[in-house]
């Protein structure tokens, strides 16, 4: 176990410290741990390169002499290895500390921690007093989320089984572009390869393990893609006029404009998107909310209530 980690560190030192390309044979002689038949050494070296790439360390391949292209060499460019974040203030570092503490016990906590350590290594002191006391929390222990983040980071295709509105499981194949959370739910957006369109999926509706497919870097995230657009609430363009019993249904009142404040009833204008959502919101409050307008919604709600009575008599 420990020999492998030492070999990876030594390989990094050798490739990072060199000013010229190192050939494989130079690497195999200089670094302990490359043992066995030439084939075995080759395979070890290939795996080590992949492991370093997974740590974000890019190994460059080049050749010494354009006339002898078979003699390739390797190195790590210091400027691709080194953090190029120029200046971070004490207050910014405190914000990052707070941002990473959110992940404690949740699925990305090791990435959050290692990221914070790197930034602390820039030698800045944090200034916690500058930050007000807030304790936002993140609750995601879903291992699928870690897989999705890996897939987005390395641009790899994923597949999973997803529950349709009628609860049938369908296999979806996705080039994931982005991820995020809203209202306590987690989402992934990406190009659905079967439907050839960008779709949004809720993680709790995925009923299988998310599987990685294909190679890293197999697609490009469109430059105009923004997750915030996909998670933004659609603008509610319709307005309903509702009568709300005083003191009740505050969730509706808080989202409305009050236009008439009576003793028993308050008349409000309530924005909504689709009639079905309006009906669900209003039906929940039973005799405490009445739809005045639109007339169409008013007659639909009467029809719904009659159906409920008929179904339960």
């Amino acid at each position: 176990m420990s020999r492998k980690s030492e070999r990876l560190v030594n390989l990094t030192i050798a490739l990072l410290g060199t000013k010229r390309w190192l050939t494989k044979s130079q690497i195999f002689t200089a670094i302990d741990g490359y043992e066995g038949e030439p084939d075995a050494k080759e395979r070890m070296f290939e795996r080590d390169k992949d492991d370093l790439r997974n740590l974000g360390i890019e190994i460059e391949v080049g050749s010494f002499d354009p006339l002898f292209e078979d003699e390739v060499g390797y190195r790590i460019r210091p400027d691709s290895y080194r953090n190029d974040i120029s200046e971070i203030s004490a207050r910014e570092l405190s914000l990052i500390s707070l941002a990473t503490s959110i992940w404690q016990g949740a699925v990305l906590d090791s990435s959050a921690l290692s990221g914070l350590i790197k930034l602390k290594s820039l030698g800045i002191e944090s200034d916690l007093d500058a930050i007000p006391s807030i304790a936002p929390t993140i609750h995601i222990s879903d291992e699928n989320f870690a897989t999705i983040v890996d897939a987005i980071a390395n641009r790899r295709t994923i597949s999973f089984s997803y529950l349709s509105p009628e609860l049938t499981a369908q296999v979806r194949v996705l080039e994931p572009y982005g991820a995020g959370t809203k209202g306590g739910y987690w989402y992934v957006a990406g190009l659905d390869l079967d439907r050839k369109d960008i779709r949004l999926f809720r993680l709790d509706r995925i009923d299988s393990e998310v599987a990685l497919q294909g190679k890293a870097g197999s697609y490009v995230i469109p430059p105009d893609f923004a997750m915030s657009t996909h998670l933004a609430s659609p603008v509610k363009t319709e307005i309903a006029t509702l009568k709300v019993r005083r003191g009740k249904a505050q969730k509706i009142v808080l989202a409305s404009t009050i236009i008439e404040d009576g003793d028993e009833w308050v008349v409000v204008e309530y924005p909504f998107l689709h009639q079905s959502e309006l009906l669900t919101d209003v039906l929940w409050h039973l005799e405490d909310v009445e739809i005045v307008k639109p007339v169409q919604a008013r007659s639909s709600i009467i029809e719904h209530l009659n159906q409920v009575v008929a179904a339960h008599e």
Partner: peptide, 15 residues
């Protein structure tokens, strides 16, 4: 100091 990995960036920016 090493570059931040994409996973690290995602964790920090979400936070």
């Amino acid at each position: 100091v090493r570059n931040l990995s994409h996973q690290e960036i995602i964790a920090i920016v979400l936070g």
